[in-house]
């Protein structure tokens, strides 16, 4: 009973996802999705026999997406294509030739953005466009400023390097300014002044 409630909640959540995202998840179920599939949706398991009946938890066969074939057909097509990350380049095991990612960087970005907006980014494959990857790179490489990072510093312009010391000198001069003016007035408005600047 509780499983049904959880399953219906997942179904409703899946129905609220954008169609391109649902299509992607059905076509390329990530390991996270495959491990979660036997509990809630047996149709997503690639090892299970192909079932033609459309279960309510089938992510690939939404009412609005009639062009997408059933998930079971896709998953049983070829294990080599299903179990690889479609976001990364792939080397063919027999020919040794490299193939580009199934989804371009632009498409990866769009999918990751859609998934992040709907809170299901953890169901996607690892991608360079994922939020966690970008945060990791940001921590590793800083803000990617030239000469910036651990053990390095930005040289900057001379006025930037000397700004703090010049401001401090100006502040000290202004602190002593009333006393200096008093002294200047006392000495006859400069008549007896000895400390002329160079």
């Amino acid at each position: 009973m509780a499983a049904e409630v959880v399953g219906s909640a997942l179904i409703n959540r899946a129905k609220s996802l954008p169609v391109p995202l649902v299509r992607f998840l059905a076509r390329w179920p990530s390991p996270a999705l495959q491990s979660a599939a036997p509990k809630s949706s047996p149709g997503l398991d690639s090892s299970s026999p192909a079932s033609t009946d459309s279960t309510p938890s089938d992510l690939g066969t939404s009412d609005t997406d009639a062009s997408t074939p059933p998930v079971s057909q896709i998953l049983t097509a070829s294990d080599t294509t299903v179990n690889r990350n479609p976001f990364e380049p792939w080397r063919h095991p027999s020919t040794g030739r490299w193939r580009p990612p199934v989804y371009s960087m632009r498409q990866q970005r769009e999918l990751c953005k859609m998934a992040a907006d709907h809170g299901v980014e953890e169901l996607l494959w690892a991608s360079k466009k994922a939020t966690w990857f970008k945060e990791k790179k940001l921590i590793e490489q800083g803000l990617r400023l030239r000469n910036a990072g651990p053990g390095k510093r930005v040289k900057g312009h001379k006025w930037e390097r000397t700004l703090s010391s010049r401001l401090e000198e100006r502040r000290q001069a202004m602190l002593g300014m009333p006393a200096m003016i008093e002294e200047w007035k006392r000495l006859g408005h400069g008549r007896g002044w000895k400390k002329w600047p160079k």
Binding site: M177, I181, W193, K198
Partner: peptide, 9 residues
């Protein structure tokens, strides 16, 4: 501000 100006040597 109004400050003291001195002639440069």
């Amino acid at each position: 501000k109004q400050v003291l100006f001195l002639e440069q040597k």
